[in-house]
Amino acid sequence: MEKISIPTNTMRIISTSSKGDQSKWHVGEKWVKQNARGYEGKAEVLASLILACSTLSEQEYVTYKPCEILLPTGETVNGCYSQDFRGELQEVTLERLFEANFTSTDSILNNKALSSQEKFEQIMHHVEIVTGLDARAVISRMLAFDALILNEDRHTNNILFLYNPVTQSWQIAPIFDNGLSLLSDEKDYPPGKPLTILKRKVKAKPFNSSFTRQLALYTGPAFINKTKLLHQLEMHSNEFGRAKQVLLSQMNDPIFDHLFFEGSDHID
């Protein structure tokens, strides 16, 4: 496993999720994240492995790798790292986009009179007004992926757009920040408890607390090569532990059948 030393002059950034704070550092061109509640690093690595076995291009998701983090204090902790995908582009979260151009997403997302589909459509319509992007297919596919991996942290600050100030154009950021998935939070989902019980406790975001309801927003084609994924899980050098068990359990659930296709292309 790669070891990454955090220089003493590197600022520790506190990343706030729906579960609390997580330490991360920007070291060179890498973002380094420390495990905070369990095995978030393994979840990130496994999530990006799934996407590597999909029809998404490498530019559409962030690849995470496991690492040991050598802190300036001399302590060694576990985590993961990824390359900085932003370049010269400015990052704008969905929430910031709304706050700058409308009010906030709350008036739509907290409206109990609206269905999940209606909330999704209204949010995507507002995004299109500001950015010119029809993000429906890409965002709904991401929500389907979130349902598969039980990502409980896809709040409106974890849906990201990138703005190019030179060309004054927008693009959807790659899928990133999947650490709070696959029951990685061992504080809320203690090891040793049955997966069937723990999985029922996980709540989705942002359009509905039900992963099934958000999964229904995706009506596109299958995008994960099941044959390749199972092969990669068998051959991968990283020990994914419970994260792998959760994924296999999810893959056996018929509600996700439409996300997978069988195939042997590009298995290596």
Rank of each mutant, 00 (worst) to 15 (best):
E75G: 07
N151Y: 00
L259W: 03
D265M: 12
V130F: 02
G192Q: 05
I108V: 15
I4W: 10
S82I: 11
K205I: 05
P194Q: 11
F161P: 06
D265C: 09
K187F: 11
T105V: 08
S184N: 13
D253G: 04
N158Y: 07
N101M: 10
L162C: 12
Q250V: 08
E88G: 01
I129K: 14
L56M: 13
S140T: 06
N151G: 03
Q90H: 14
R86M: 08
M11T: 15
L94W: 14
G79D: 08
E118D: 14
S237K: 04
I13A: 01
A52N: 12
S184A: 15
G74V: 15
S237E: 15
S237P: 03
L215G: 00
F120N: 00
T55I: 10
F102A: 02
H266K: 15
S249I: 06
K203D: 01
K205A: 13
G132C: 09
W170P: 09
N78P: 01
L97G: 00
F102Y: 15
D177T: 10
I224N: 02
L97F: 09
Q117N: 11
R154C: 05
I14V: 14
L133S: 08
I6S: 09
L230V: 08
P66M: 11
E128R: 13
V32L: 05
